[in-house]
Design a protein around this nucleic acid. Structure first.
Lengths: 238, 238
DNA sequence: CCGGATCCGAATCGATACTG
DNA sequence: CAGTATCGATTCGGATCCGG
């Protein structure tokens, strides 16, 4: 029934009808990192009820935002269509906008691999990167481990298996063989480093962050490369 | 209770918690056109239940997106804060994205003044405008009347009172005194003109659009100025 | 008319359990 | 692994009502 329609003939309204339902945009966010299985999505969205996940995936397929792709070996993955991938700059801009309203983490808030990956993409400063030498580092937040490579102005992020879990087979991209120049661990307070509230030094001193190995001075470069200025209008340059 | 929280510490999640509830982004869309009274919003969102409107306005105020401003003479208006206004490029980008998925209008879909105003902003091509002479025209869709002025690469839109209704007093901006060079009326099918599916000539021939007065050849300029390329990645340049 | 508040049935969401 | 089924808790939608 059309009772749940907004009843307007308008682009914004249509967009909201496609991706405005609860959880939908978070599913898109995770799929922007890469194709994901049903179970991956469920893990990356720990509080999503499974029936809602399945409903949303069905709706997103009907809207042409998501596609269901059977895997040759086993199982299947969901991935964004070209149309769905067009949401990337919008999701990144929303991430920057929301970043400024993030308070301190709630008691049971988690940081997932996909959300942290997108957060780093959100905060990435391509112009700065173009003018800076390569940076290869490893970031630990909770039990999420990310390998971050900034080279020639381009950002690449790999998700490393946290503990005993084997590396995801679908992640066929060549992994960085070289050792990272810097490995550091942080809590959610890493947000204060990215916002500029804390300098790398202050972050270490306050216990928000600690260097596991490598050259600690590279943290300055990291802070320059990943930064969200609180008062900046959310640039949406694709 | 935090049961309705998404349970993630992430910018996108925070954004969705602020403006992801039903109707919230449409309220923001209308407020991007200008400050609005409670009753204006209710009229511009014909299907919104009044309790939902009041709840959303309260939530948006708590989030610092919307502000409630008492008017000197009478009544009060809601307006976006600076933080709320930062959503403009995001809403415009969403409008472009959703535009491509708009089918034909539903039987009871309406076109409101604010949604059409934002749709034109969404479709506006500043680069084209910079290279083209001034255009001053009047657009009728349903009983919405918009005066559109493109001058020196800048777009300005005034909403004209459709019928007997007096002009809104808060709309203190200087209105265009000169007569428009072109007045035309269209149905929702104007979407096909903006998407490029129809040329101005074809739009007239198919009855989607008809010129009320003025120079019909200016429709070509209009179509150049307001265009959404279906296959274009949604540029978010602020 | 403006700016809501209240009430109630319908639809959705959240949590858990269960299945091919 | 990839979902369905079920059921109580919330929210939404529609209508009415109310004080200025």
């Amino acid at each position: 029934m059309a009772s749940r329609s907004y009843g307007q003939y308008c682009g914004v309204t249509t967009a909201v009808e496609l991706i405005g339902e609860r959880w939908a945009l978070l599913i898109v966010r995770d799929l922007l990192v890469g194709p994901r299985r049903y179970t991956d999505l469920k893990q990356g969205l720990p509080r999503i009820p499974t029936n809602i996940l399945s409903t949303r995936l069905k709706e997103l397929q009907e809207s042409g935002v998501v596609r269901r792709v059977p895997l040759m070996h086993c199982g299947l993955v969901y991935e964004l269509t070209d149309y769905g991938r067009m949401l990337e700059p919008i999701v990144l801009a929303l991430g920057r906008w929301g970043f400024q309203a993030m308070g301190d983490p709630g008691a049971d808030d988690v940081v997932t691999a996909d959300s942290l990956t997108m957060a780093l993409r959100t905060a990435f400063q391509p112009d700065v990167a173009a003018a800076l030498p390569t940076l290869h580092c490893e970031v630990h937040v909770g039990d999420v481990v990310l390998r971050v490579l900034v080279d020639d102005g381009v950002l690449r992020i790999w998700q490393l298996a946290p503990a005993g879990r084997p590396v995801d087979p679908r992640d066929a991209a060549p992994r960085p063989v070289a050792e990272p120049e810097l490995v550091f661990a942080a809590g959610p307070g890493i947000r204060r480093l990215i916002s500029g509230e804390l300098t790398p030094g202050a972050a270490i001193d306050s216990g928000v962050l600690h260097v596991v190995s490598g050259d600690a001075t590279l943290l300055d470069r990291f802070a320059d490369l990943f930064h969200i200025d609180e008062s900046l209008t959310p640039s949406l340059a694709a």
